[in-house]
């Protein structure tokens, strides 16, 4: 579907020095969609047709999509379009901040375990194992319930549940790269351990972590939705996307209530995946040239 033919066209062999910037269809598409959503979160109060919470119209409840209500109305007669657009203001920052925090914590712990080894590794990985041994949803539920409802507490719960996967992944990456010749060579030419890690280990981990992080943005949105559904996440009138999907899942006949927030989640997740994929291609020199025609 999305092949990067541009890479072949702009590299006429060995004689010319390579130009670093490069176009990639997936990267452009992902960036456009995410930029669109970011624009929505910034400007929605100026153009949304209705208020997502206050504009209740009980005469027009559960109406299908129409000229007045593009995405229809929900069981309280609120405009689904406005709620989905406003929902981006909650769901996007929630997902991004949770994943960023989880990546930061998980990668720091995993990198420390892999790079220093020995007892540091043992100690950190046992903590990771303990956290991983709980089912994610159950643990998140327990944490969120203990902290009380609210978006900030959802972030904390989600981060505490997702960091161990990053720690595991990062540790494995660091271990496999640390044994490579180029790392020995870096030590031999006199790089301090910090530089060895930054310049010679970290760049080889970022692709895998980046791809997992972009995939996890979707998982996190769904996890937050689950918490909202049970009542420990977003507080009811807040138009969080997960909560919107939960609203609609009780009645299939009123399909528009769940479908449109679901599509919103889909576009965001897909766009983030495209960005992750595109970035990997761009920063991995092996992928840059003679890239085979792939199916996706």
């Amino acid at each position: 579907m999305t092949e990067t033919t541009s890479t072949i066209a702009t590299s006429p062999g060995h004689s010319t020095p390579k130009k670093r910037p490069r176009r990639s269809v997936t990267l452009t598409m992902g960036t456009v969609v995410i930029s669109g959503w970011v624009l929505v979160t910034l400007t929605v109060p100026w153009w949304a047709p209705f208020d997502p919470v206050k504009d209740q119209d009980l005469h027009h409840r559960l109406n299908g999509p129409s000229g007045a209500h593009w995405f229809g109305t929900d069981k309280l007669g609120r405009d689904v379009f406005s709620r989905v657009m406003y929902g981006a203001r909650i769901s996007l920052p929630l997902a991004i901040s949770s994943v960023l925090l989880a990546v930061l914590i998980g990668c720091t712990i995993g990198a420390a375990a892999g790079f220093f080894g020995k007892w540091v590794d043992e100690a950190l990985m046992r903590i990771t194992d303990v956290t991983l041994s709980f089912p994610a949803m159950v643990l998140a539920l327990a944490i969120a319930a203990a902290l009380g409802p609210g978006i900030r507490n959802v972030v904390i719960a989600v981060v505490l549940v997702t960091w161990p996967e990053y720690a595991r992944l990062m540790r494995g990456q660091v271990l496999s790269i640390k044994g490579g010749d180029h790392v020995k060579a870096a030590t031999a030419i006199g790089c301090r351990p910090g530089r060895v890690f930054r310049r010679h280990v970290l760049p080889f981990c970022s692709a895998v972590i980046g791809v997992k992080a972009t995939t996890d943005l979707g998982v996190v949105i769904l996890l937050a939705a689950g918490l909202s559904f049970i009542g420990v996440g977003a507080v009811p009138p807040d138009p969080e996307w997960g909560a919107l999907v939960s609203d609609g899942r009780t009645s299939i006949a009123h399909w528009w209530i769940a479908t449109f927030p679901g599509l919103a989640i889909l576009t965001v997740v897909l766009a983030f995946n495209f960005i992750g994929d595109g970035l990997r291609d761009r920063y991995d020199p092996y992928h840059r040239r003679r890239r085979p025609k792939k199916w996706r």
Partner: peptide, 27 residues
């Protein structure tokens, strides 16, 4: 200093030749 057996694995594939050769000068 040391020269390794396989230059494919002993050179950091994400760095340009300039970045590779300048590193000892920097550190």
């Amino acid at each position: 200093q040391m020269v390794f057996q396989d230059p494919t694995s002993s050179l950091n594939s994400r760095m340009t030749v300039g970045q590779i050769v300048v590193e000892p000068l920097i550190v």
